[in-house]
Write a protein that binds this DNA or RNA. Structure first.
Lengths: 246, 246
DNA sequence: GTTGCATCTAACGTTACGTCAGCTTTTATA
DNA sequence: TATAAAAGCTGACGTAACGTTAGATGCAAC
């Protein structure tokens, strides 16, 4: 018979955990003294080992409680399910890591890294799937593939240019610059995505889009005022570039 | 200006979350009416996007709160750190998944799958690293490698035999069987790890080991009584097999 | 007998909200 | 314009698995 402290040492659990498991009915001590002290024997160790193992496999205590009573068949099928859950988690983590890699690559190539802009880019990297799904309502699938193949291959360059030009244009909004320089910026901005591809997209998009959703999935780096100003300047300088999406 | 409900729809967050962020000081509405109603404007959307993005990258709200005020340099280095954390998580998940695969392979080959035994095996699969570290205190490294190379290559067979024999021996403890059969079981049990390797280990282990720790890392599938009985029977039948570890 | 350590229960804190309950304000309709 | 419905508000509890006090008691040693 071990007191709770001894048993904790023996099993590697904390006293608090043991009390918690007792309260939950997951592992009851084999004897409780009149004063309410808990005493455990060797048979409890087996249960502890099961609990620890299942915890390691990422089961919750509730799930463990059920599994402790079940037969091997249940455990086996439960393991398969658990594996699926873990694989989903891993896939998710992989996506985030890849995104971080791309983002740091973009940042590494850029002269200016403005946090807000940078996060916006990360956001668009992360929501690629949702973007595609949304666009699938309006655009033919092969065009979507074409778009994302292009942006995917040139993702670092595109985003580096996008970040830098956006930054400079925002600066120009604050402190006006020479027309010639502004014109160049706007031209470069509208050329990030090559014209032919851009035209094809614009043509396909002639129907209406759900602006609510679009604003969520493709947030603009500009404020309303900046955007208005931008269009105005583009018109004034004899330019017109589509700039609503991507 | 949007009411909290409108803003929630626009951003995809819940009303509750917005109130929570307000309370936390993460995102305050741009205007609060006398009645206490919250109103948001377009500039808030930018902050929401940052929050959502960082949440997606697995930051806590506290961390996000700090990052919202920091510059790009902080965000970049924080991203590297975040990546490391995620990689650790992924490594952990990978280990568990591999373990589940091995475990199901073992179970698939076995006639009997007793849950307790099965979990014990999973436990030993999961704690391989700790086991090695512990053994390194007593055994030369090359011997440890030799051991785990052997058990690693034959892991499915070994564990399947281990599980089956342990099960049968436990049965024999409950309902005595013929001496001949028992002798065979014990012999097979002691031969799961080949004799020469076993002898080498036993020789190297002649010094003392920390039993407390050993019991935690290499829990026996047998109760004390069963173990005593087992040794007794082995002696009686003219056998002696080391069986303390693995 | 008392000191000191172990143990007990009860309770709050943690994360990021979901979900009431009960009340007030705003909005839409008759 | 009166009223009802919808939306908003605060405050509180619940979640998972304990960590961490606080204050009271038990037990063993000197």
């Amino acid at each position: 018979m071990y007191s709770i402290g001894e048993f904790a040492k023996k099993t590697g659990l904390t006293v608090r955990s043991l009390r918690f498991y007792d309260q939950k009915g997951l592992l009851n001590p084999s004897y409780i003294s009149e004063a309410g002290h808990r005493y455990y024997d060797d048979r409890c160790i087996e249960t502890v080992q099961k609990i620890v193992t299942l915890k390691y496999l990422d089961y919750t205590l509730d799930e463990i409680e059920e599994l402790l009573q079940d037969d091997s068949q249940t455990i086996l099928s439960s393991l398969m399910f658990q594996k699926e859950q873990l694989e989903k988690k891993r896939t998710q983590i992989d996506r985030i890591i890849r995104c971080i890699d791309t983002a740091t690559a973009i940042a590494g190539q850029s002269k200016v890294v403005e946090p807000t802009l940078f996060l916006l880019i990360i956001h668009s990297l992360l929501t690629e799937n949702e973007q595609k799904e949304y666009l699938a309502q309006f655009l033919p699938l092969d065009l979507i593939e074409k778009m994302y193949d292009y942006t995917g291959e040139n993702i670092i360059d595109i985003n580096q240019q996008y970040m830098e030009l956006t930054y400079l244009i925002k600066q120009a909004y604050q402190k006006p610059i020479a027309d010639q320089a502004l014109k160049s910026l706007i031209e470069q901005f509208s050329m990030i995505i090559p014209k032919p591809l851009m035209l094809e997209i614009a043509e396909a998009l002639e129907g209406k889009v759900d602006m609510e959703m679009a604003e969520l999935l493709f947030p603009s780096p500009f404020t309303k005022e900046e955007e208005e100003w931008f269009l105005e300047q583009a018109k004034r300088l004899g330019l017109y570039g589509g700039l609503d999406d991507e």
